[in-house]
């Protein structure tokens, strides 16, 4: 499989994320057990951009929830910056598919939520929020209500809210899944820009092969039953996309080949699942 399997823990490596032999087994009410994840290991250096792809049921969302600290794995551990992950923490920011914004607060309040909870002085929050509004391209929308914004703008707010806390790792759970194709492409560009400018470690889960190729220096393809890492790619497209038009990147010869390869891989897995069900 991958070299991550053989890698041992280097706890001295202060700004890295170690996923160490994670397993997750649920028991169902009818007595049977589901292996959502089995022996998943991975090492990420600071500033890496990882996309995770796989058919439904491959455990990618479970993996993300474990990384965020919302679920405790039944085996293995996650270590970030030398300490074990035991629960949610602002060091790991999260961007959800549907914003999960607080619609009772203005855009500004939403973005400043993390610092406000920490008790950062009002003035500093305001300054930080203004910067972030500028970065995500919402400078005129700070005082709007959340429900007055379009879906794409809401995701921009979600990104800004996550960045306001200055996390080490940003976890994204299909953040662009609910957007239309045009908005989605713009947002992909924004994610790449933020990655390059902030140097954050980003883990992004997606259903879209194209998106996984564009937004992953490293790309993991996961397989279901039990959920495991099937194949890992190291890709140049994210780096290319930082400066170039994303549509130009997509015309790249290698991009097309990789897309076909991964698509047929996932097709095969889906077929296998269907076959097993019957």
């Amino acid at each position: 499989m991958t070299e991550a399997n053989q890698s041992s823990l280097h706890l001295d490596d202060q700004s890295s994320l170690h996923i160490d032999d994670i397993s997750m087994t649920f028991s169902l009410p009818n007595g049977s057990a589901v292996e959502a994840l089995k022996s998943v290991s991975l090492r990420l250096a600071a500033g890496e951009l990882l996309s995770v792809l796989g058919p439904s049921g491959c455990g990618k969302t479970t993996l993300l929830n474990i990384l965020a600290g919302f679920l405790a794995p039944t085996g293995g551990q996650v270590v970030l910056n030398g300490h074990q992950v035991t629960g949610p923490d602002p060091e790991r920011g999260m961007v959800f598919q549907r914003g999960a914004l607080f619609e009772w607060m203005s855009v500004r309040k939403n973005i400043g939520f993390g610092p406000a909870m920490k008790g950062v002085p009002e003035k500093q929050i305001r300054q930080r929020v203004d910067e972030l509004l500028e970065i995500v391209g919402l400078h005129d929308f700070g005082d709007k209500a959340i429900y007055e914004l379009s879906g794409g703008m809401q995701q921009r707010v979600a990104l800004a809210r996550c960045l306001a806390n200055d996390p080490d790792v940003i976890l994204m759970d299909e953040p662009l899944g609910a957007l239309d194709a045009l908005t989605r492409e713009k947002m992909q560009g924004l994610v790449l820009k933020l990655w390059k400018e902030t140097g954050k470690t980003i883990i992004l889960i997606t259903h879209s092969v194209e998106e996984a190729l564009l937004l992953g220096e490293r790309l993991l393809v996961m397989a279901p039953r039990p959920g495991r890492i099937h194949k890992e790619y190291h890709l140049p497209f994210a780096e290319l996309g930082v400066d170039a038009d994303l549509r130009e990147v997509k015309k790249h010869q290698d991009y097309g080949n990789k897309r076909e390869e991964i698509l047929s891989m996932i097709w095969e897995m889906e077929e296998e699942i269907m076959g097993r069900k019957e």
Binding site: A68, P90, M94, R98, G114, N165
Partner: peptide
Amino acid sequence: SKVHAAYSLG
């Protein structure tokens, strides 16, 4: 996810 988001924001 709102609750999760709030926990993640500290």
